[in-house]
Design a protein around this nucleic acid. Structure first.
Lengths: 136, 136
DNA sequence: CTACTTGCAAAAGGTTTGCAACCGG
DNA sequence: CCGGTTGCAAACCTTTTGCAAGTAG
């Protein structure tokens, strides 16, 4: 899917110097048929397994952050290690301001879904939450 | 809104021994007009400010977990301290299995919203994400 | 009394940082 | 060469844990 040259160009076009490590990580992430989800932990394991060249954890963190800023990756439902709790236990949704990190309630009735997917086999929908990220 | 007696009963009815600390925390959380969001950090600050009696951080964690299990609180968009990334940067949604902690993509077209709220003044919608929690 | 709780300090993750060595252009 | 990067270890932050002391019933 991606040639090394394409990756190098992609990196360059974002102002990222195409170092050995970045190219290798980019290959692991983007040179595949399907997109996927990962955590730093799983990525680290995949990269630093047995015989292969090692890349330090710090560099993996750096790179993933750089790729996310460059728009190659998306961070999912993360609140940067801090757990948020809500005294409102009724089903409802939230605005999340990434600047101020503030949550604002959206009443349940303010959002209507006209189409909801069928859950994976053998699983039941427990709860459905909409998070609308906002910015200035 | 809540008398001490009500709180004690509420705790008892969930099998939680109404200790001084739990009652105090419950008061802070539920004895107000509006529901609100908090993190352990903000709650800790509110409780352990200047002159007041102190409650240890560990107890606050314990209590909040107990309250959450009892259904008094809801945890919001937390993935327990680990950040998830997605190589799929197209707008799309997710199933999140709390048991296996696995994310599954839901194609954008599989969910349709027929009503979306207006964002707070001066803010723009940057992105809208639906997370459907599933369980066995 | 006894079992459940608390509180402290230490430990445990995950993530970030400081800084010298390294390397891509 | 120069400035951006890497890698290591130490530092950080949030959360969890072990255990002795405290307390509600």
């Amino acid at each position: 899917m991606y040639q090394k040259k394409e990756i190098v160009n992609k990196l360059r076009s974002s102002g990222l110097r195409p170092t050995k490590q970045r190219v290798l990580i980019a290959k692991k992430l983007f040179d595949r048929d399907k997109t996927f989800h990962f955590t730093i932990e799983t990525l680290d394991k995949k990269i630093n397994k047995k015989g292969s060249e090692k890349i330090s954890l710090a560099t993996i963190y750096n790179t993933i952050e750089a790729f996310t800023n460059a728009g190659y990756l998306k961070a999912i439902l993360t609140s940067k290690s801090k757990s948020y709790y809500d005294t409102n236990i009724k089903s409802h949704h939230h605005f999340y301001d990434e600047g101020t990190k503030e949550l604002t309630d959206i009443d349940y009735s303010q959002i209507k879904l006209s189409k909801v997917p069928i859950p994976p086999k053998g699983k039941k929908i427990k709860n459905l939450e909409v998070v609308i990220r906002v910015q200035k």
